[in-house]
Amino acid sequence: MAANYWASTQRRYWLFSREKLAEVRERLRDRDKVTHSQFPLPDQRLLNVYFNQQLIKLGKRMSTRQQAIATAQVYLKRFYTKNEIRQTNPYLVLTTAFYLACKMEECPQHIRFVVGEARGLWPEFITPDVAKLGECEFALISEMSSQLIVHHPYRTLSELQPELPLSSDEVALAWSVINDHYLTDLPLLHPPHIIAIMAIIVAVVFKPSHPGGFPGSAQTALAGAMRDGSGMNMLAAALGDNSGAGPPRIHKLVQWLAESEVDIKAVIECTQELLSLYEVWEQYSEKHCKELIGRMVKSKNLDK
């Protein structure tokens, strides 16, 4: 149902097990092995970082909200479980996902304006013809079976804030962690409340030390802290036993977790996924992503 995650199409059709997701992608790859070897692309997460940056650029001059960007990212993920990226023009797909997400998240933008902005950013890859985007919208909606309502962890976060309660710094950091999780497969693997709880735990356990870095992301603030291990050990210890070890703030949170019967194992898995994102992120090069995608689109004439 629309506002009830448990009955939603998101839970029924867009929640994968790790194995299932790997299998789906394997099948896409097998369909066109030649193209695959011809056009290598960076790690999926690095591509996601790149796409996210492009979406933010696209939204910059329009009054879009983070939630519309998040929805667009989920649309991209869903679409690319049904379509091999090497058969598409990713710039067109992400512009369309953005256009559609803005309508869904009640901050609609005129199609001409979106196309104009996209052309300003990627003139080589976006034609001035709005019909291209309109057509791609059909493809996107069709591949997603019109299941366009996306449940985000932001809502759980704001619901839990007064209950726990969380300081505004903690909320801000948890919010950035949620922003970051869209760069991983987590939105396809776990329900939004698990992600929100993971984000809260990470925010409470690893206090941000150096803000800044990538806008809206917790990468700079967290990568070091999470990697140095002490925090992770503290987290594992805290989650593993609720005997009362560790700082009282964390102890309280763990107690709350135990009472609310949250799937702790899933939360830990999400934390690890986030940590590994921050590791791989260090290799990110915008230029590299841009070149590989550009070469692929141009030599396959996908922009036509």
Binding site: L100, V130, G134, F138, I141, Q147, L148, I149
Partner: peptide, 21 residues
């Protein structure tokens, strides 16, 4: 006929009807 982008009300109706039962 050209693709001109779907109206927001069509998008709303499609997405809501897909979820509702």
């Amino acid at each position: 006929i050209q693709y001109t982008g779907l109206s927001q009300s069509a998008i709303r109706e499609m997405s809501l009807c897909t979820e509702l039962s």
